[in-house]
Each structure stands twice: as structure tokens, then as C-alpha cells.
């Protein structure tokens, strides 16, 4: 049992050990496997096939297992390291933690958006982006997308999602807009005038690789998704009578039959069931 902390509460030694473990996992070639895995399991709901990671109810448990796998890889390097979380509703300053030189480094420079500071800057030689959407080998960020400004989610926007007592609802995809905590956090909207919410919006705000199909290339991915994981735990605490849905496999008559994972069906690629992942305290605790 270990504890995941708020990134702003890490001391300098904890920051250094987290960074060191991430760099070592990268050096071993394991990091890029995580980048590929995430891309491979990003299946959109207008396509055929089963969706486990995105646009589906298992958005939360799939990423919980994904984070656990990554955390184990870090702990093989340094058993004391755990994943920190970034509360982007509160810590929104673009130059304070986690964007400091001894942690994740800062914003990309104007023009080519290349990150120039911190341990993940290309010039440091430790962070080549080898699994990329474009041929550029350097990490990029463009905080707030200045060309078309986007803001980090507010506490009210997150509360709008956490306050929904329904976990998810039909059609169990990215158009589940009427009710459902899951998509209010994941953040898909329908209609041109809508922005994108919470999880999606943070990907857009960071910019660079975080906006694309290789988003885990930016280490902030893990801090972002650890907060998403904590949000799930907070929702469970708030709504004791609610639970993961769908609770049973969808009938063959349902258009989403075989395309989403219910409570006791296995999640690829680990074959773990959402029901085994509901209680995070089996694995770790959160310092809040």
C-alpha cells in the first residue's frame, strides 16, 4: 500500500525521484510501449469494434489499470515513487508546479512550441519523442492554445460532473450528454458551439503532443490522469448508492452490444474486470 500525493506537495527529493524514474523507464524503451498502447486502444465510437479506453463507460477503469501498470514500471526503477496528481482546477499558473525546471519543465516556445526547460526538453538528450504523430523529435506544449484560446476547467465545471449521480447512460459513447458522470468528465460534446469539458479540455490546454494520438509522450499525461482517477474516487464517495454502469452485458439487441464493457466483463489488454478496479484502496490511497 502506498500513497499518491498532490504534485504541489512533493518535496524536491520526491520530484527528483519521480523524474529520475520516468527518464529511466524511457531509457529502457518501456515508456514508448505505453505510448503505443494508449494509441492502439483509442477507438472512436463512429467506427466499429470494442471501445475500452475512450468514449465508453470503461474510460475510468481502463485508465486506472493503465496508470497502475505505468506506476509499477516506475516502481521497478525506484520503489518509493508513486504517481502524483495535478488538480488543474486549482493549480493553473503556467509557471508554477508542475511546470518548474526541476519537475516537468515549462511551456513550449512561441513558433514551434518546443519545450526548452526542464528534464524533458529535447536538448537535454533524455527525451526524444520517437513515437510521434509528426516527425518532430522534441516535446511540444502550447499552454492555453494562444491562437485559439482555451481555458483550464474551473472548479464549477468539475463539480457539474461530480454532482451527477448517474455513472453513465445509453448510448454509452461520446454522445451521452443527457446524464452521466463519465462523459461529463471525459468531456465529449455534440454540436459545434459546445466547448470540450474537463478531461478533453486539459489535453487541449497543454497542447503539443497532449492534443494528439500520442498524448502520453508528455509526462504531464500521468499527472492529469491520476487526477482523473482521483475524481472517480471522489464521485464514488459522494454517491454511495450509485455504481458502475452498465452493470450487466448489453443485450444483443442493443447497438452497443459487444462494443462496451460492463461491470464483470474483461478489459483488454489486461483482462481485468471493472468490478476488480472499483476500489482503489486495494492498491493505493490518495493524500487529499
Amino acid at each position: 500500500m502506498y500513497t499518491r500525493k498532490n504534485q504541489k506537495d512533493l518535496d524536491p527529493d520526491e520530484r527528483a525521484r519521480f523524474v529520475g524514474a520516468v527518464l529511466e523507464v524511457k531509457r529502457r524503451g518501456v515508456y514508448d510501449e505505453f505510448v503505443r498502447l494508449h494509441g492502439r486502444y483509442f477507438v472512436s465510437d463512429g467506427e466499429g469494434g470494442q471501445r475500452v479506453g475512450h468514449m465508453s463507460p470503461s474510460f475510468f477503469p481502463w485508465h486506472r489499470q493503465y496508470l497502475l501498470e505505468f506506476e509499477r514500471a516506475l516502481q521497478q526503477v525506484d520503489p518509493a515513487v508513486t504517481l502524483p496528481y495535478w488538480d488543474w482546477t486549482v493549480d493553473q499558473a503556467p509557471s508554477s508546479s508542475p511546470w518548474t525546471d526541476d519537475f516537468l519543465g515549462g511551456d513550449g516556445r512561441p513558433g514551434d512550441h518546443r519545450v526548452m526547460t526542464g528534464p524533458f526538453a529535447f536538448d537535454g538528450g533524455n527525451w526524444p519523442v520517437d513515437v510521434g504523430v509528426t516527425e518532430e523529435k522534441y516535446l511540444m506544449r502550447s499552454f492555453g492554445r494562444p491562437a485559439d484560446p482555451v481555458a483550464l476547467p474551473t472548479p464549477a465545471e468539475l463539480e457539474w460532473a461530480i454532482g451527477d449521480p448517474v455513472y453513465d447512460s445509453a448510448p454509452w459513447d461520446s454522445t451521452s450528454t443527457t446524464a452521466g458522470f463519465r462523459n461529463k468528465v471525459e468531456g465529449w460534446t455534440v454540436g459545434e458551439q459546445e466547448g470540450w469539458h474537463n478531461h478533453n479540455r486539459v489535453h487541449l490546454w497543454v497542447g503539443g503532443q497532449m492534443t494528439g494520438g500520442t498524448s502520453p509522450n508528455d509526462p504531464v499525461f500521468w499527472l492529469h490522469h491520476t487526477f482523473i482517477d482521483l475524481i472517480w474516487a471522489r464521485w464514488q464517495r459522494r454517491h454511495r448508492g450509485s455504481g458502475y454502469e452498465p452493470a450487466r452485458p448489453l443485450p444483443a439487441s442493443d447497438p452497443q452490444h459487444g462494443r462496451v464493457v460492463s461491470l464483470d466483463e474483461p478489459l483488454s489488454p489486461w483482462q481485468v474486470r471493472p468490478s476488480e478496479l472499483l476500489d482503489h484502496t486495494r492498491f493505493y490511497l490518495y493524500a487529499e
Binding site: 463512429g46 504523430v133 509528426t134 459513447d173 455534440v190 478533453n200 492534443t211 494528439g212 494520438g213
Partner: peptide, 22 residues
């Protein structure tokens, strides 16, 4: 450029994976 459809008929690309376009 890899493109995918969303259930509402919109499109997302490998470059923009967290938003979609009409």
C-alpha cells in the same frame, strides 16, 4: 492523416484526438 468518425458523425484526427470537427 489518420481520421476517425464519432457517433455524431463528426471527425477526429490523430493530430486532434480530444476534439472533433463537423
Amino acid at each position: 492523416l489518420h481520421v476517425m468518425r464519432r457517433a455524431d458523425g463528426s471527425y477526429l484526427s490523430l493530430v486532434n484526438h480530444y476534439r472533433s470537427f463537423p
